[in-house]
Design a protein around this nucleic acid. Structure first.
Lengths: 388, 388
DNA sequence: CTGTTAGCGCCTTCAT
DNA sequence: ATGAAGGCGCTAACAG
């Protein structure tokens, strides 16, 4: 039904090879024939057959972006930045210029099965690159499964970049016959590029300093005089959740406030999402009516917590200070404006996109950590002098 | 480098065809050989070559979802619903079960070039289906270009569904010889499926009743006694913007309030986004300090407007009532909770996903309109009796 | 139920 | 600068 390259060739009275060359632009073609071919393409409404092309060239132009929750702006902002970095969308040359990549985002919904499924599907398509965004699940089997899959993808030539996610764990040392066999000639190629590639991580990582950021945030509250600080976590099985909680507790310890049972009592385990934040804040108030501040694992939770406090007749920050994390756009508009840690999501995404396209040199060691910046706003204030 | 189907066949001592059959599961294979093949697949770490498969079968498993702004939850919610409807992500059967579709979202960023580019890229991939979400651009050339492209996609077997977007314009009447030639035997196949298909729109449409919704929202304000109502639009070139504005004005007219210059004075043209809402509200206040209500084209704008009002020392709803549109999750948490029109984004998305998979029968005529529901909350109140 | 035989549409040496 | 030819890896008739 649809026109093929051969049809175009016939129409333009050239060989299929020539048509292929003008379409891919990677080869000299005389201006006259090029024009003729292009006209034939127009007239026949010809559209390149992607699968056929990918098969023959053993390479596709698909770039996959995995996100945990597409309805969450945290991911939307990163994904948008990655995608726009990849699809220049330059006008001219007609839509679908040669070499244009198809950057697509896949929503795992936080499900390990779907994450693996998408990775497999992308592997099937021989994707040019894969970008995984946001926190990873910590279950050992899943980490192993994902690492293995990423290693295979990388081995097949797919570039893998992690954006806002901690580095992959090092693969367990391989003591099999295969690696021992190589030892014999080890000295010969020590230090060569090949040797390096073999041991390098398959992924380039742009990690967020969640732990450090969380620590600085809690230090901010401590500096304001707060001592009874409630903490609302995200989903337990996520690296992001754990790192932020660790940072919070590190700040407490540094201050000499390490009463483990008390700390545990002031921690409510929730999930990302405003409802979770709402409920968790109520629970915190129940457990410890005299707390003076609440730190949430992210901005969305923090806003839910604010709603709960208001419903309880408490005012922010006079009665209770509240802080979030991420600095999503709406945080600035909250009433009062939310104190939070800003993560440069768009910048990180853009950089991840460039890395995926091999248009930027990777950081030394393949891993960079991106700092979070404290945005002290109206939702936090010095602890009030009020009767306990 | 990577194992091929032939490798698996050799390893399992069967023919390539048999391997293909167990992988696709669309053909009877004895339990014994199936197991043998599956084991070979495991041992060789075999992953189907998507492009090759798509080429041979002349069909791919890609489903594209186009969104205008991936960082906007309006689109994120719809896209997530579509995607989860399409990728069952059922555990078991191992990741990447047969027949699993790869649902991917593409962010146009509201750019017509990118919209066309993605459509072309998807056409190249011979996508199984394409879902376009949200308002369309109104520029005649662009509408024509998109329509033409969608018609071609549909002709090539790609299912096209519009979700939260108005129906495609009917193609200009074709008076060419081809269509006239058919007239001769018109009576014979009148009413047959074929005849219907020929004239049917290439796309199935799930439209939102933006006009009606906007009208009911403004009626709500009128019923509260408001007469000087400011309106903040979205980007001018979008259908959504126009329809909502039309609905607003229709309500005004029905009430007999059709002073065109006054209406125009109370309308500020902006863009989606909180900053635009903030600025627009300030402008409205400047033009008409005595207004008692502001209606925004969507929730995000409305929240920006709220911030501006607060900064001006006005309280909501005592001094000014504010209303939005869409009922995004954060609207409920705003202070005060935002009155808005709820659009069933997730439901619409799920339905669009099913339609794209041909798992639900399309509405008669191929078009359905989905109503918006008024969520009257605390940001709107009866107009106060205060000195003008 | 399983093997054999042709392509699917394009890219890519190799000639010219 | 252009043409000819082979094959990328898989599926889809056909046989058996």
């Amino acid at each position: 039904m649809a026109a093929t390259l051969a049809d175009v060739a016939a129409h333009a009275k050239v060989s299929p090879a020539t048509v292929s060359r003008v379409l891919n632009g990677n080869y000299p073609v005389s201006e006259a024939t090029r024009a003729r071919v292009l006209r034939a393409v127009e007239e026949l409404d010809y559209v390149l057959n992607g699968p056929a092309s990918a098969l023959a060239a053993a390479a596709s132009n698909l770039v996959g972006i995995l996100v945990n929750d597409i309805a969450d702006p945290f991911f939307g902002i990163m994904a948008g930045a990655i995608q726009s970095e990849i699809s220049s969308g330059h006008a001219g040359a007609g839509a679908g210029a040669a070499g244009e990549k198809l950057a697509v985002v896949c929503n795992t919904g936080g499900s390990p099965e779907r994450e693996l499924m998408y990775l497999t599907l992308l592997q099937r398509q021989r994707a040019a690159a894969v970008v995984l965004t946001g926190g990873a699940l910590e279950s050992p089997e899943h980490v192993a499964a994902v690492s293995a899959k990423l290693r295979r993808l990388a081995a097949a030539g797919t570039r893998v970049v992690l954006c806002g996610r901690p580095p992959l764990p090092a693969p367990e040392p391989d003591t099999s016959a295969g690696s021992r066999a190589k030892k014999g000639r080890g000295g010969a190629d020590r230090g060569t590029a090949t040797a390096h590639t073999e041991t390098a991580s398959p992924a380039i990582t742009l990690a967020f300093d969640n732990r450090g950021g969380a620590q600085r945030l809690t230090e901010h509250l401590l500096a304001l005089g707060h001592r009874r600080i409630g903490y609302i976590t995200g989903p337990a099985e996520r690296t992001t959740t754990r790192h932020r909680l660790e940072g919070h507790r590190a700040a407490l310890e540094a201050q000499g406030l390490r009463d483990d049972t008390e700390t545990e009592r002031l921690t409510v385990y929730g999930s990302y999402g405003r409802t979770a934040g709402y409920d968790a804040a109520l629970e915190l108030l129940r457990r410890s009516p005299d707390l003076t501040a609440i730190v949430a694992a992210n901005d969305t939770i923090a806003l839910g917590a604010c709603a709960a406090l208001r419903d309880r007749g408490l005012s922010i920050p006079q009665d209770v200070s509240v802080a979030g994390f991420d600095d999503l756009p709406f945080s600035m508009d909250a009433v009062p404006a939310l104190t939070t840690m800003r993560l440069p999501l768009a910048e990180a995404g853009a950089r991840a996109g460039r890395l995926a396209l091999d248009r930027e040199t990777p950081p030394p060691g393949g891993v960079t950590t991106i700092r979070a910046e404290l945005m002290a706003r109206a939702s936090t204030a010095p602890v009030a002098l009020r009767p306990v």
